Every structure is written in structure tokens, then in C-alpha cells.
Simulated assay, not measured.
Amino acid sequence: MRFYTGHLKLLEIYFGIAQVTSGNADWMQHENTIVIIVEDDTRTKTYGGARVQLADGVLPLPIETAIGKYDPKIYSYVKKGSAEICGLWNSKEVAGMGIGSQVLVRVGVVLSAQLPIDTYHVLCAPITTRVGKRVGFVIDESLGNKGTFFYPKDDFLATAMLIDDCFELPHADPKEKLLISDLRENPIQSKIEVGPKGSYEVNYNLRIPTHVHSAL
């Protein structure tokens, strides 16, 4: 609920919630959705988050709902073994620290090694396309206008991106690949991260509980 409330506030500010498919709350009852949150030590204050939603034929991925009417090919792309990183946001309090643009995207890719998936989708705003490329996403030029769509508003450009090998990450930046590998091998650890506004400590706990594995 803390993830949902924080995300909703930002969507209302920037777009008006009705226009953004990732603002839909159906995922809250979906057993194949994993929520990632960044919170303080007391676990009462949430600074940001993202979701990983697996394609299971029960709940469409947000990218299907968002661009399906513009390019129906997305429906044949999304099948079992696909997932999407979506709903990424961070609060104004941590703006400029790299949490939304760096840490959460990396964590989403880290988690893919624990999941039964090989293909990752994401729909990026212009500012996060660069971050997506760094962790291994490539623009899916077979969709839309060479991968781009006007979404969620006519003056806002979104880019469909794809990782087609979640394990090897052939297109990831070499430095980023090392960071991802380290978190995959040591999912519970503390480390200093450096963002545009300086450094800060993050206590990572990226082990997906076993009951989630059994549900998948």
C-alpha cells in the first residue's frame, strides 16, 4: 500500500492517473507480481519503488495495455517467460540520489536471475532510456515508430525496450554488469552507492521469498 500510495501521488501530479496503465491497482491481488521498495530503517517511510510483473495469462503486463492499441504485435511478444519492470518511481525527498534512475532499475534486473523468465520488457520515459541501456535493455525497434510511442499523453514520448537474455545481459555496460553480478551473488548486503547528489548507504535484501517461487 505504501508503494501504491507514493506512486499514485506522482502519477496524479504529472499525468492524471486515468491515463497511466501502471497506475492500475489490479496487480495488488496478483500472485505473480513482486514489489520492490526503498524504505528507511524503521520501515515506515517509503522513498520509491518498482514492480516486476510476470506474464502468466492472468493479468496483462502494463506494456500490453499501454501500447496494444497502437501496435498489436506486443501481444504475441508477451508470453510465458516474459516479465516487465514497471511502476518505477521515487519521492522528491530522494530526487537526484539515483534511486529511481539507477538503483531500482538495477535491482529489477538483478531479480530476474531468481525468476523463471528469459525476456524482460520495459516502457521508458526519455530520461530513463539511457539507464535502461546501461543495464542491458535495447530499444525494440520492431514496435511502434522504431520503438517509440506517444504515451501516456500526446506530448510525451515513451520507448519500448527489451532484454532477450536476462542471464547473460549481452548488451549491458561492463561496469553495470559487474554490479548486477555482485548483487546476484550476494543479494543481502550493505554497500555505498554514489548518485548525482553524493553517496549514501543502501542495505539490500533481494532474496525473493520461497513462497513466491512456489507460486510461479
Rank of each mutant, 00 (worst) to 15 (best):
M1K: 12
Y4V: 05
Y4A: 13
Y4F: 11
G6N: 03
L8S: 09
L8K: 14
L10N: 08
L11W: 09
E12W: 01
I13Y: 13
I13K: 15
I17G: 01
A18Y: 15
A18T: 04
V20D: 03
T21R: 15
G23N: 05
A25V: 07
Q29W: 14
T33N: 10
I37E: 15
E39C: 13
E39H: 13
G48N: 05
A50W: 06
A50P: 01
V52I: 10
V52R: 00
L54I: 09
L54F: 14
D56M: 06
G57E: 01
L59Y: 07
L61P: 00
P62R: 00
I63N: 07
I63Q: 10
T65Q: 12
A66E: 12
I67R: 03
I67M: 06
G68W: 05
Y70S: 09
P72Q: 07
Y77G: 12
K80V: 02
G81N: 08
G81P: 03
S82G: 08
E84V: 01
I85T: 05
G87K: 00
V94Y: 15
G96H: 13
M97N: 11
M97Y: 14
S101T: 11
Q102M: 08
L104N: 14
R106Y: 04
R106M: 13
V107A: 12
V110Q: 01
V110N: 00
S112W: 00
S112L: 01
Q114T: 08
I117R: 01
T119F: 11
H121Y: 15
H121C: 06
C124V: 06
C124E: 11
C124A: 10
T128R: 04
T128E: 10
T128V: 13
T129I: 04
R130K: 04
V131T: 10
V131P: 02
K133V: 04
G136F: 13
G136L: 09
V138N: 05
I139H: 09
L143S: 10
Y151L: 02
K153D: 13
K153A: 04
D154K: 13
L157Y: 01
A158Q: 03
M161Q: 07
M161R: 10
I163N: 00
D164Y: 06
D164Q: 14
C166M: 11
F167A: 11
E168N: 11
L169Y: 02
A172K: 00
K175R: 11
L178P: 02
I180A: 10
I180H: 03
S181M: 10
L183D: 07
R184F: 12
R184G: 07
N186G: 04
P187E: 00
Q189T: 14
S190V: 08
K191D: 06
I192L: 06
E193F: 15
V194I: 14
V194S: 13
G195K: 08
K197E: 15
G198Y: 05
Y204W: 09
N205A: 10
N205P: 04
N205Y: 07
N205D: 15
L206R: 00
T210C: 13
H211G: 03
H211A: 08
V212Y: 13
H213N: 12
S214Y: 12
A215W: 08
A215I: 14
A215F: 08
L216T: 01
